[in-house]
Design a protein around this nucleic acid. Structure first.
Length: 772
DNA sequence: TGAGCGTCAATTAGC
DNA sequence: TTGACGCTCA
C-alpha cells in the first residue's frame, strides 16, 4: 500500500491536514484556486479507508465533470491500489444514472433507459409541440426546454408550474408541454439530463426503502466544486447525507461562475447554518502562481460585495509583472498575442504550457487565423466534438435502438438515414399511428400495413426499417459493444452510402464511424463491470449498455492531441486548469464584462459573476499573465469602440511593473501610465504614428440606488484611435487626405459623414480621417 | 430529397 | 458578420 496515514503531516500543510483528517461532523473546505483541493480530497478518502477502516464502497465522491472524477480516481488508485475502484467517484449525473438503472423501476423507469441529450430533447419537444399544434415560431422550443430544465433543477412538477400561471404564451403553455414531454420520454424509455437528478429525488421520496439503502451504504459523501451545486443537487446531498455527519464539501465562492445554469452559491455560503456543528477549513496557501498574479487576482475579486473573507498567498514572492497589450483592433490583438506566443515558444516554453482565453467563442476565430498564419500549433478546447458529430450520433442511435427500440428520438433520427425513401409524409403518418396506438415508432413500422395513408411501397420500407432494428437487437443481444457497432455500421447501410458518395466529406465521416467502431471494440476489451460488494448478485450492465452510457455522459475525455499545442478556450472552459503563461484577451467593456451582464437584464450580481470569471482566468496562470484589449472591434458586423474593461482598472499599477509615469517604450510597445495627481491609470501606446495616444481609464459612479460601496460603472478609454477611426463627434472638425478639412455631421459604424467646404457631405471611412 | 435562399438572432456549457 | 433554421423549388 502506497499510503501511510502517519506521513500525512509531512505531505500536507496544517489546513490541508485538518481538512483531510477531520471526522465526526460536517465539513466545509473553502479551497482557493490552486490550494491543493484535489490533493486534500484524495488524501481524505485514503485516510478514511486506511486509518478509519471505512470500506471504499461506502464512500461516494461527486464531481461536476468527468475530468475531475477521472483525476480523482487516478490519484486515489495510486494511494490505495485497485480497491480504489470500489469507491463511487463520479459526476452527479453518472451517479444518478447508476442508481436509477438499479432502482428506477420503483418509479417506472426501465433499467435500459436511454439518456436524451440536448438535440434529442429539442427534437422531442418539437414533436410534442407539433402534436399539440403549438407554433414553434410563437413559442421557442428551446425556451420551453429551458423552463423545464429550470423546473427540474428546482424540483418542480408540471402541476407546480400550472399553479403559477404566466401571462405570456410561453408561460401559459409550458406546464402542459412539460407534462406531455415527460409523457413522451416515458413512452420512449428515455430520460433527459435533468431527469437523472430530479427523478432520483422523486425515487428517494417515493421509495424510502431505496433511499435508506443508499443512506446506510454511503457513510461518507464528498462533493467537489460545491459552489456549483443547484437546488436538486443540494436536495440529493441532504437526502443522502442526512445530518451531514459524513458530509464533506469543497468549494470556492470566488469561483462560482455557473449561476446562469442554476448553480446557487447560497448552498455554500449557508452550509455552516444548514449543517449544525459544521467545521470550516480555509485553504489559502497557493501552490500555483506567483504573488504578483495572486495580488492582481485579489485586487479584482475584492471589488465584489459579498464574498467569504479569504486571500490567497504563496511562499513564492514576487514574479514577473503583468503585461498589457493594447491593440488597434481585434486582428491586431490576435497578431500581437501570436507574436508573443511565438517568442515564448522560441524561448523554450512548452506550447502545452501556454493558453489563450477569451470570453466568447466567437472571439476565437481571429486568434485561430493569426495562429494558423503564424504556424503556431494550437487546439481549441471544447467539451465534446467527436461525439457531437452528426454521423457519430446516427450510429449511436442505431445502437441505442438495438438496446431500446422504444426510443422515438433515435428511431426518428435514423429512420431515413441513409436515405431509404421514407420521406416526411410517411414519417408523419407513422408517428401519428404510433401515437394513436400508444406504441413506439419501430413497432408502428412493423405494423405499417395498418397505417392509414401508406401505400404499399412506403409500407414495405417502413417494415424493413423495423426488421433492421430487429436484426440489430439480435446482434446486440450478447452485449458486445464492438460487434453491435460493426453490425450497425454495415446493416444500416451507412457504410455503403458513404462509400458510394465518395466525397472528401463522406470519407471523413466514414472514418469517424470506423473510429467509433474501434472505440467500441476497445471498450469490450478494457471495460470491467463495476464491483459492488453491497449487492453481489445484482445483474451488472453489459459492455454495450455501459458503452452507450459513456457515450451519453462522457465528453471527449481522451481526445488525442498530437504533440504539444497552445490551448485556446473560453474563460469558463479554463476553470480547473493551469498554464505557465496565460493570455487573457478582449479586456473590454461589453466583451468582458459581457454586455449581457451590463444591459437591462444584467445587474450587480451579473457583473460580480463576470468578475469571478476574471478571477478564475487570472488564477490559471502560473508565472506570466498577459492581458490584452483592442481599441476597436467588429461585433456583429459593426465596428465598435469599446472602453477598457473595468477589471483592468482594478489591477494596481505596480503589478504592471509601472512606478509613477513611465516613458513610452518602443520595446514593449505599450505602457500603462498613471497620472499621480488623479490616481487614475492611463494607457499609453509606445507607437510612433504621430498621434497622441494617452488612454485614460476613467471612473464614474453609479447614480442609482446608493450602493454600499461605490460601484464602478464605466472604465472609459478616452482616446483618439489613430488608424481605424476616432471617437469623432458631431460638430467636430476632421481632416481627409483628398477632401481637406470638414465638419462631422454624422457617424454610422466606421463611416463618418463629413461636410467638406466646396465638396458637400461625404460618407468616408473613419480610418482615413484625422482629428484636427 | 436536397441545394439554395431569406430571415433572424446573437454569452458562457456541463452531464 | 456568421450561423442556424425553415421554406421553396427543381
Amino acid at each position: 500500500m502506497a499510503f501511510d496515514p502517519s506521513k500525512l503531516p509531512s505531505l500536507l500543510n496544517p489546513e490541508q491536514l485538518r481538512a483531510a483528517t477531520h471526522t465526526g461532523g460536517p465539513l466545509l473546505v473553502l479551497a482557493g484556486a490552486g490550494s491543493g483541493k484535489t490533493r486534500v480530497i484524495t488524501y481524505r478518502i485514503a485516510n478514511l479507508v486506511i486509518a478509519h477502516g471505512i470500506e471504499p464502497w461506502r464512500i461516494l465522491a461527486v464531481t461536476f465533470t468527468n475530468k475531475a472524477a477521472g483525476e480523482m480516481k487516478e490519484r486515489l488508485e495510486k494511494l490505495l491500489g485497485p480497491t480504489a475502484h470500489e469507491a463511487w467517484i463520479s459526476t452527479f449525473h453518472a451517479t444518478g444514472a447508476r442508481i436509477l438503472r438499479r432502482d428506477g423501476a420503483a418509479i417506472g423507469i426501465p433499467s435500459g433507459f436511454v439518456i436524451y441529450d440536448d438535440s434529442d430533447q429539442l427534437a422531442e419537444m418539437k414533436r410534442v409541440m407539433k402534436s399539440m399544434g403549438v407554433d414553434p415560431k410563437l413559442v421557442d422550443p428551446r425556451k420551453v426546454l429551458h423552463r423545464i430544465d429550470d423546473a427540474k433543477n428546482h424540483g418542480r412538477s408540471p402541476d407546480d408550474l400550472a399553479k403559477r400561471p404566466g401571462y405570456d404564451e410561453l408561460s401559459r403553455l409550458t406546464p402542459e408541454l412539460y407534462r406531455r414531454y415527460q409523457k413522451s420520454l416515458a413512452a420512449a424509455g428515455a430520460v433527459d439530463f435533468g431527469d437523472l437528478l430530479s427523478r432520483l429525488v422523486e425515487l428517494f421520496e417515493k421509495a424510502p426503502d431505496v433511499l435508506q439503502k443508499y443512506r446506510n451504504r454511503f457513510r461518507h459523501v464528498l462533493v467537489d466544486e460545491f459552489q456549483d451545486t443547484n437546488r436538486v443537487q443540494y436536495r440529493l446531498l441532504q437526502m443522502l447525507a442526512g445530518d451531514g455527519r459524513g458530509l464533506c464539501v469543497v468549494g470556492d465562492d470566488d469561483q462560482a461562475i455557473y449561476r446562469w445554469r442554476g448553480a446557487d452559491v447560497t448552498n455554500l455560503l449557508s452550509f455552516p447554518q444548514d449543517f449544525a456543528g459544521a467545521e470550516v477549513v480555509k485553504l489559502e496557501q497557493n501552490y500555483r502562481s506567483t504573488q504578483t498574479i495572486l495580488d492582481a487576482a485579489h485586487a479584482v475579486i475584492a471589488h465584489n460585495p459579498t464574498r467569504m473573507d479569504k486571500r490567497l498567498w504563496t511562499e513564492e514572492s514576487g514574479g514577473a509583472p503583468l503585461e498589457l497589450v493594447v491593440a488597434r483592433d481585434e486582428r491586431d490583438e490576435a497578431q500581437q498575442v501570436a507574436d508573443r506566443v511565438r517568442a515564448a515558444l522560441r524561448d523554450g516554453v512548452d506550447a502545452a504550457e501556454v493558453a489563450v482565453f477569451y470570453r466568447t467563442n466567437a472571439q476565437s476565430r481571429v486568434i485561430e487565423e493569426a495562429f494558423r498564419l503564424g504556424r503556431i500549433p494550437y487546439a481549441v478546447v471544447r467539451g465534446r466534438s467527436f461525439y457531437d458529430r452528426a454521423e457519430v450520433k446516427d450510429l449511436a442511435s442505431y445502437l441505442r435502438l438495438a438496446v431500446n427500440p422504444l426510443s422515438s428520438a433515435d428511431a426518428l433520427r435514423v429512420i431515413n438515414k441513409p436515405a431509404r425513401g421514407i420521406g416526411d409524409t410517411t414519417v408523419g403518418r407513422i408517428e401519428a399511428a404510433a401515437e394513436e396506438w400508444g406504441v413506439g415508432i419501430v413497432d408502428a413500422c412493423r405494423q405499417s400495413a395498418q397505417i392509414p395513408g401508406l401505400n404499399a411501397s412506403a409500407q414495405g420500407k417502413a417494415r424493413s426499417f423495423a426488421q433492421l432494428v430487429g436484426k440489430l437487437a439480435l446482434e446486440a443481444a450478447n452485449g458486445s459493444a464492438g460487434a453491435a457497432a460493426e453490425a450497425a455500421l454495415k446493416l444500416s447501410g451507412l457504410e455503403d452510402a458513404y462509400l458510394a458518395e465518395g466525397s472528401d466529406e463522406a470519407v471523413d465521416r466514414l472514418d469517424n464511424l470506423r473510429e467509433l467502431v474501434g472505440a467500441a471494440k476497445e471498450w469490450d476489451q478494457t471495460w470491467t463491470p463495476p464491483i459492488d460488494p453491497d449487492e453481489p448478485e445484482a445483474e451488472g450492465p453489459t459492455p454495450l449498455a455501459a458503452f452507450l452510457e459513456q457515450l451519453a455522459l462522457l465528453g471527449d475525455a481522451d481526445e488525442k492531441i498530437a504533440g504539444p499545442k497552445v490551448a485556446l478556450m473560453t474563460l469558463h472552459a479554463s476553470k480547473g486548469l493551469e498554464f505557465e503563461r496565460v493570455f487573457l484577451t478582449g479586456m473590454e467593456e461589453t466583451v468582458f464584462p459581457h454586455s449581457r451582464a451590463l444591459g437591462d437584464e444584467g445587474g450587480i450580481e451579473e457583473v460580480a459573476e463576470e468578475r469571478r470569471l476574471c478571477y478564475v482566468g487570472f488564477t490559471r496562470a502560473k508565472r506570466r499573465l498577459v492581458l490584452s484589449l483592442a481599441r476597436s472591434r467588429v461585433l456583429f458586423g459593426n465596428l465598435r469602440f469599446n472602453e477598457a474593461s473595468r477589471f483592468l482598472g482594478e489591477v494596481p499599477r505596480e503589478l504592471f511593473g509601472i512606478k509613477g509615469a513611465a516613458k513610452p517604450s518602443r520595446q514593449t510597445g505599450v505602457h500603462v501610465v498613471y497620472d499621480d495627481a488623479r490616481g487614475e491609470p492611463e494607457i499609453d501606446l509606445g507607437d510612433d504614428d504621430g498621434f497622441e495616444d494617452r488612454y485614460q481609464v476613467d471612473y464614474s459612479f453609479d447614480q442609482r440606488p446608493a450602493p454600499r460601496q461605490p460601484e464602478i460603472r464605466r472604465a472609459v478609454v478616452r482616446a483618439p484611435a489613430p488608424d481605424t477611426g476616432a471617437p469623432f463627434r458631431i460638430g467636430m472638425p476632421a481632416r481627409h487626405p483628398s477632401f481637406g478639412v470638414g465638419m462631422v455631421e454624422g457617424i454610422d459604424g466606421d463611416k463618418v459623414a463629413v461636410r467638406f467646404p466646396g465638396v458637400g457631405v461625404k460618407r468616408v471611412v473613419a480610418r482615413f480621417l484625422q482629428a484636427v
